[in-house]
């Protein structure tokens, strides 16, 4: 749910990175954090376990610039990917304006991707949202690894709706900003339509 503040002339939107455990959601945020001008970002918060697995969420506030005199701010969140943190994932999806599904391209994670995508649909439906209606893009991450599934196959499995999708390597940053820009554009376009 976007928040328009006429007083502060600000518009705030919430973007959530979803995907299976260890697919690189936090790495996406870390890359964005490292590569963003200090004026345009706030502190990055990670609620993680001692072994750096996301426990509740990561949070990164970003300013994109002005549109018609309104500052656009995006709050980026990741969900914990591990299956048993489902209750937390549901909470983080509340009020979401746009979703990035981060898929792990490795052959052995194919099933985990599918499971996480199904879980996303279920959790959205519980809150009365649907993937068909919400700004949504997909990122095929870890394209630098040797044991990966061809993009066509991933697309067939995960992207039947043919939403914008991007190949990425979040460690090096390839595709990270492309994915974020794509979802941000969709969110702003949705706002324009009054959504």
């Amino acid at each position: 749910m976007s928040f328009i503040n006429y007083m502060a002339r600000e518009i705030n939107c919430k973007i959530v990175y979803y995907g299976p455990g260890l697919c690189g959601k936090t790495t996406n945020l870390q890359y964005i954090y490292e590569r963003t001008n200090p004026d345009a970002k706030g502190k990055m918060i990670s609620l993680a376990t001692e072994t750096e697995r996301t426990l509740f969420f990561d949070f990164l506030p970003l300013s994109l610039g002005e549109i018609r005199g309104f500052k656009t701010r995006f709050h980026l969140y990741t969900v914990p990917g591990q299956v048993f943190y489902d209750a937390s994932r549901k909470l983080i999806l509340k009020g979401v304006d746009g979703i990035i599904f981060c898929a792990d391209s490795q052959i052995e994670r194919l099933e985990a991707n599918q499971e996480s995508m199904d879980n996303l649909r279920t959790n959205l439906a519980e809150q009365g949202y649907s993937l068909e209606k919400i700004p949504f893009v997909i990122q095929y991450n870890k394209r630098d690894l040797p044991n990966i599934v061809p993009v066509e196959e991933l697309r067939e499995l995960l992207n039947p709706m043919a939403v914008p999708d991007y190949e990425a390597n979040a460690r090096s940053g390839m595709g990270v900003f492309d994915t974020l820009k794509a979802v941000s554009k969709l969110v702003l376009t949705e706002l324009k339509r009054g959504g």
Partner: peptide
């Protein structure tokens, strides 16, 4: 509409 916006106006903000 899936995602209603929250809007803040000057009058309420001041209150």
């Amino acid at each position: 509409m899936v995602n209603p916006q929250m809007v803040m106006y000057e009058e309420e903000f001041n209150q």
